[in-house]
Each structure stands twice: as structure tokens, then as C-alpha cells.
Design a binder for these strands. Structure first.
Lengths: 186, 186, 186, 186
DNA sequence: CATGAATGAGTGTTCATTCAT
DNA sequence: AATGAATGAACACTCATTCAT
């Protein structure tokens, strides 16, 4: 039930997954405990559901991006991807962190995660091929690094620990990554 | 007491902070509950203590590195820093993630974190000055990105979700970051 | 919930408030720990609830008594009040003593206590006015003395430390107090 | 050891017997836990020791009073006894209440209590004999009533719940009791 | 005599989960 | 489908007591 999932999202964001009580979620959703267990096997099941949502959005986002090439078009593509990723991550941050802290694993989530990862890596690899010649950087490793970076920045932005001009920061990140990939002094 | 902190580290790593029961830690340390609460106010206090340890090691590590310059020396410096950071992070991974999940904050930890961050940023800024000319990337943002990247890779390596030639991976990372900083096609 | 309050009363009476474990109460009430904390914030909250019950009964009892006059009617009134008070006190003895030992305070209880006290003092003052002339005893102080006396006798009777003809004892008490109030040599 | 008993007295008075931790007492006495258990079998043993002290003082006090006669001398005797009793009680209040709450019993304490009780009852009986004729009040019951009254007033004074002219109050009490005993209209 | 670090049994309290209505 | 009162297993934490030094 959407109402419950949304409430879970909100409550997790406010209190953190572990501190969030089923009672909080149920109240936020204006429902009863019974209803919660009608739609979710247990609290972790709700986390899993939200993780699937997250992975789906991420995968969709990954598939939507165009090739990341050494030229300005590639740079723009990367730049816009950064912003979208951060926005999505900000919504699912708690879910992701709880997921990691609890070392949970789930077929569907894992699968979607790999899909997203592969999609981005593919776009990047295309760009690298375009750049020709032997690149000392590996596409998959690079994508991993990119996503890690994004994750952390998204978190920092969410928790407001960072105070800076977002636009300038995105520019720095985009340059950093783009140059890291292609060594093109823009 | 060292024995308890060490045991806590081990148990947190195995079960995760939230799943770890005080009883597990006490048993792993071959002590009693009473002794635990003799040295730590509560479970979270142990987490805080470990976070301080972590922040201290990180700060020390950060201060030990030499300038990260555009040349091969700088590259080597960066390369070796990566390895050390990952190694340290791997030991404290759970602590860091629990710290973030619980949104805990602590004067000492925060202070040491800032110190470490600043130290690395300074080394990097030096290198950037050497590189002369206007750099489109900002040193502080870059360091943030670098550390995020490392954090996530460290985690991936720890949880063994990644299976790859570590040396090659470190090379890719070092290149990626170094080129990102200096745009020097190595 | 009545079932729990009643069980609490019984268990407190048997073991004393401090020695009574929540588990004992819960078992005596044929319920679960969860249910206990559904109706009471904690063990002390149950004590408070019982103290309110006690204060209410005492206040009701105090309001029910007629004027305590120097004549035989007044004596009879006093005599019957004594018996009722003792009976009530016997049921709430443990609650009262725990309440005092723990130096707890509560708006409602305090208020009802004052009400009861005032009601009795008023009845007595009326009688004293009837007795005319200056009385060397103050009504409020006298009531305090009376209630203290009753409290302790009630306790003695409850704990069976006293073994005597109850009727005779009540007579002595009634005479003692009545004469103390009105100095009428019966 | 006196130092510990004194400290116990102070701490019990401050926090109440149950809330007082052995650690508090030990710290207040500037000694160690080990030393505590060198002189007392356990926490309750300290309570018992203090109860013995209390009972001894009370017994001594009871033995020191002269005959309580219907005349002014008897009244004065009673009046002064009241003040001394209250003063003693105020020091031992917590001990007494804890003793009652825990329903503890002890040969020595019980014996001294009976002694004190008997001594006062004897003095009163003497006075009653002097008053000649059949008294409707029984000496032992009367003494019980008297002591109860005193106990409660002492407590009220200690906890400062009562705010009144102490001297006037003592007068009322003395009159009340004396007249209750001898029915002499003052 | 004195110490205080170490102990661990004991207990209050929480909260995910169930099930009769 | 929806409810929410009832459950009880699980856990953090306390503190009286001991004993090696």
C-alpha cells in the first residue's frame, strides 16, 4: 500500500530506520498495525520494498542517460546526471544506509543495482572507446568511484553538513570526473 | 579498556552495530556486563569511543602524506595514500556506517574529521598551485569526492562484494583521481 | 485496567512495593508485560494510580461524616468514622508507606488529601463551636493528630502486630480522642 | 564503624533507603566498598544497625520521663517528652519508614521498642491510678495512639509539609493528649 | 585493616508481531 | 479488507557483593 510505503519513507528519513518504530509509521499513515502486516511481512520487508523502489528509479535514471563522451556534450550529460542522481539519492538516503548497515541482500534489488551500474558503465565505455587509444582507467572501476562520490555528496547535502554553492560544487565534480575519465583539459 | 573496545570492534564488524548485543561483546572480551558499564556509559558510548579511535587514525594518516603534485612523485603519494586509507577504513567501516545511520555527532570526532579533511585538502591545494594556472576544480570539493570514493571502495572491498585485482583497481583509482586533479594525460 | 490495579494492590500488600516485581503483578493479573505497560507508564505509575484511588476513597469517607459534637451523637459519629478509616487504610497501607518512603508527590493525590483533611477539620470545628468557649486545642492540629493515630493503628492491625479485642480498642481510641477534643469526663 | 553509620544516616535521609546505593554511602564516608562489608553484612544490616541506634535512643528517652499525672506537672512532663520525641524521630524517620516498608523484624529492635513502649505506658498508668476511679481509656492503647501521633507529626515537620508555629502546635498536642488521658477541662 | 576493580544475577522496559473481532 | 488490544521474547542496564592485592 502506497500510503504505508510513503509514511515509512518519511519516518525513516526523520528518525532513521532502526529508531523508527512500526507504530510511528502506522500513525503517520493513519492506519493500524494490522493493516501494516497485511501489506508487509515485517519492518525489514518495508525496507526491502523501498529499496526496490530506489533501485528501480536508479536503474531508470541510468538507462536514460546518453553517452558520456570526451567532448562538451558528454560533459553536459555527466553534469545533468550528477544533479538527478543526487536528487534521487537524497530521497532514498536512509534506506540505502540502513540497507548497508544491516548487510541485507535481495535478488531484485541486487539485480536492478547491477543493471543500473552496467548501464552507466556501458555509456562510459562508449565514450572511452571514442577517446580512442589505451586508457589507463577501467570503466567499471570508474563508475564505482563516480557513484560512491555521488552517494557521499548527496548525503552531505541532505544532512546539511555541507554549506556551499551547489552549482559551483556540481561543476567541480563534473570537471573532476570528466577529466579523470578523459584527461581532457577543458 | 582496550580488551572491550577490541571486542566491540570485532563484534560490530561481524553482526553490525545494531544487531550486536552487549552480551556478545562482553563474551568476546571474556569479561562481564558490569565491567562493560564500568568503562562505557552505554552501547553508544562504545561506538563513540571507536569513532574517536577511527578519527584519530584518519587524522594521523592525513597529516603523514606529502604534497600531491602533478608529477609522478605526487601520483605515487596519492597511490600509497589510497591503500593506507582503504586499509584503515576497512577496520572501522561498521563504526562509520552506524555513526552515520544513527546521525550521532560528537565534538571530538567532528573536530578530528575536519582536521583530517583539511590536511588532505591542503596537500592537494599545494599541488594545484604547482600546476599553476586556473584550475576549474576546487580543492575542498575534490577532497570530499576523493574521500567518498575511497570510503565506498573500502566498504565494497570489506564486504567482498567486489572481486577484482586490487592492485589494478588501485591503479585505476589513482589515475582517475590524479588526472581529475591535474588533467595530466599520464 | 482494573485487573492490573487489583493485582498490583495484592502483590504490593504481600511483598511490599519495592520487593514486588512487575512480573509478579503481571502474573497475578494473568496478563503480559506488554499489557502492563499499555496501561501504566511504569511501576511507579501504578503506585500513583493506587494512591489516587486511596485518596479518593479517603476524601469520600471524610465528606460522608456528620458533625463531631461533644454529645453522644458526636461520639458515635467519631467512633464509626474510626472503623471506616481503619478499614480503608488497611487496604491501602502499603501504597501509603511506599508513597512516603519514596517521597513521591502528585497533584491529584495531594489535592484529595487536603480535601479530606479539610472536611474532617471542618466537622470538628463545628462541634467545637457548639462546645462554645475558648478551646485550647486547634481543630486542624487535632485532625492531624487523629489521622496519624488512625494510620498507625490501622497499620498495626494489618500487620497483626497487635492482638487485642478490636472493639475495646476502638472504644478507647474514640474516648481518647473525643475527650481530648471536648474534655468531657465520660 | 561510626563513620559509615553516620554516612548511611545522611544518605538515607537524602535519597531514601531504597534509592540509596552502597556506593553513595561509601563515598560519603570517604571509604571503600570493601570496608563497608568489613563492618556490615549487607545494606540491610546497616539499616538494622541504625534501627537499633534509634530504638536505643527512644528507649532511653522513654525511661527518662517522669510520671504523667493529671496535674500541671504531668502536663509539663508530657509536653517536654513530645519535643524530645519529635527531635529524635526527625533524625531516624527514614530508617523507621524503610523498616516498616520492608517489614523487617529484629530481636533487639523489637525488644527495645517494647521496652520503650512499656516504660511510657507504665508512667501513664501511674498517673491514671492517681486520677483514681475507672478510666474508660486503656493505658497501652493510649500510648500507642500517642506515639503514632508523634510519629506522623514528626514526619510532617521533617518533610516541611507543615508550616505552623511549632510551639503552638506542641501546646495543642499536649492538651489534646493530656485531656484525652485525664478528661481534665483546662 | 583497607581497597576498589571485577562480577553477574536480577529487572524494568520496549516494540515487532499476532489474531479475534 | 481493516482494526488495535494483547502479547512476550529480547535487551540494556544496575548495583549489591566479593576477593585478590
Amino acid at each position: 500500500m502506497r500510503k504505508l510505503a510513503d509514511a515509512g519513507m518519511r519516518v525513516f528519513a526523520e528518525r532513521g530506520y532502526h529508531a523508527a518504530r512500526v507504530d510511528d509509521i502506522v500513525r503517520a499513515a493513519h492506519t493500524s498495525h494490522g493493516t501494516f502486516y497485511l501489506y508487509f511481512a515485517n519492518k525489514e520487508d518495508l525496507l526491502r520494498t523501498l529499496a526496490v523502489d530506489c533501485a528501480q528509479e536508479m536503474a531508470k535514471l541510468a538507462e536514460g542517460i546518453g553517452p558520456i563522451t570526451p567532448d562538451v556534450t558528454g560533459f553536459a550529460e555527466l553534469r545533468s546526471f550528477l544533479a538527478e542522481f543526487v536528487s534521487t539519492y537524497q530521497r532514498y538516503g536512509v534506506v540505502i544506509r540502513a540497507w548497508m548497515e544491516d548487510q541485507v541482500s535481495d535478488r531484485e534489488v541486487d539485480w536492478l543495482g547491477v543493471q543500473a551500474f552496467t548501464a552507466i558503465a556501458a555509456r562510459l565505455a562508449e565514450g572511452m572507446d571514442d577517446a580512442g587509444a589505451a586508457q589507463p582507467v577501467d570503466a567499471r572501476t570508474s563508475v564505482g568511484a563516480l557513484m560512491a562520490m555521488l552517494e557521499r555528496f548527496s548525503y552531505a547535502l541532505t544532512s546539511r553538513r555541507i554549506e556551499r554553492d551547489d552549482e559551483a560544487m556540481f561543476d567541480t565534480l563534473a570537471h573532476l570526473v570528466h577529466r579523470g575519465f578523459f584527461a581532457a583539459p577543458t
